[in-house]
Design a protein around this nucleic acid. Structure first.
Lengths: 221, 221
DNA sequence: GCCAAATTCGAACGGTCGTAAGACTTCCCC
DNA sequence: GGGGAAGTCTTACGACCGTTCGAATTTGGC
């Protein structure tokens, strides 16, 4: 095996030139976790898929739990960075008071973009969705404790619809996030069977429009 | 230990007088699975919580997987029976063409009722939601294959809104189910932190109204 | 080209898991 | 009240798990 394969050099993260092995483990683990769930994937599965030694996970990440947390932190940070950027741009366009639909678009567009069939982060989104509900206690604690990112959106929604009670806004944000987190492969498959092939999640632009239409109308109820 | 405790006689299922041990295992397993997830609960945890022998799970259910599947089958059957009854009654009231909101109510009311703090099936609903995404391959296969119950609702929705394209109806049903499946304890906790205590899931009647308002408006978008 | 640090490797340890075998006890019907 | 079925109990097997250790190897600075 050559120390730096072509696959690794294309997969490498932009900023830092970390050890190739660490990235191989990271990518393989993310994929396997996303496809089969955290508990159903062993360290041996990961290292075998990555083509590295069994001890690599503990050497580079400390433990299997820490590896999961590492992936989760990086991907959620990426996702929230894209969301914050879109929300910031919407604020700039509307003197700090963007309309409802643009706030919702800033929340939903990044993950929906990741969902595109040829998108580099397609599997990452599935990972994040799974880790949210199947993750370790540490992840669950972060989700419950750190709501700072979400608060930016709830604030924007409160400003966009000052006529609504805060209670209504929080619940409707909750509903919207529920719609989003339901975008798992298995759910798409189920929907596809039900609709007998009339629904295609490949058209993520169309799906985003549908979600925005639904959520916006829900907020305006 | 007396062979038939008071707790067991109140927990016993209506129709059949099954072995007390089997019911103890069933109830304990459902609770632990709902609270901690299937993979995080061992057969030893279950039998210890139920106060029965370790071998009881395999003797009465065959295997741990079969136990999970058994609970899942019974609870989803109960849930779908209640839903079908409500849909049937709505059909009777409106000559087979109930309005949109009543169809959605038939879909959402049973699980929301189960969510009430003092409801006997509160933990069962959490179990079902978890089993949907964390279950075994067998459960996942049933979910994907058997959409007959869901089809009754998609048909009713198509009839209630014949102006909408089937594609729209299927997607909006998908969104509505996403809202519903997001009703996990952890998500309520998160929302409660975000809203600083302004949201209370204890008021399930109010929550049902909120969900119906949101979903109905989404369908009418 | 050498040495120390970083990394990789093979191997194994301690633990937990689901499951099964076999002895034992309880229950029920004749 | 005797006998067979149903249920319970103890015990342990075999498999897989995450993690660790010490040796071997590679890497990078001088």
């Amino acid at each position: 095996m050559s120390p730096t394969t072509d696959a690794a050099s294309t997969e490498v993260e932009a900023a830092e030139t970390e050890a190739a092995t660490k990235n191989l483990v990271f990518v393989a683990a993310e994929r396997l976790f996303a496809l089969h769930g955290f508990q159903n994937v062993s360290v041996r599965d990961i290292t075998a898929a990555a083509g590295v030694n069994l001890a690599s996970v503990n050497y580079h990440f400390g433990s299997k739990d820490a590896l999961l947390f590492d992936i989760f932190k990086r991907r959620t940070a990426e996702l929230n960075r894209e969301r914050a950027k879109m929300l910031h741009e919407a604020n700039d366009r509307h003197d700090g008071n963007p309309p409802l639909r643009e706030v919702l678009a800033a929340l939903l567009t990044p993950p929906l973009r990741w969902l595109a069939p040829d998108h580099e982060r397609r599997i990452s989104l599935q990972f994040v969705i799974r880790a949210r509900s199947e993750g370790t206690d540490e992840i669950r604690n972060v989700l419950k404790t750190d709501v700072s990112h979400l608060r930016r959106f709830s604030d924007a929604l409160l400003r966009a619809r000052p006529d609504l009670s805060p209670e209504d806004v929080y619940w409707r944000l909750h509903f919207t996030l529920g719609m989003l987190h339901n975008n798992r492969f298995a759910e798409f498959d189920r929907l596809n069977v039900l609709s007998e092939g009339q629904t295609s999640e490949a058209d993520v632009v169309g799906l985003l429009e549908r979600m925005l239409d639904f959520a916006e109308a829900g907020f305006n109820a």
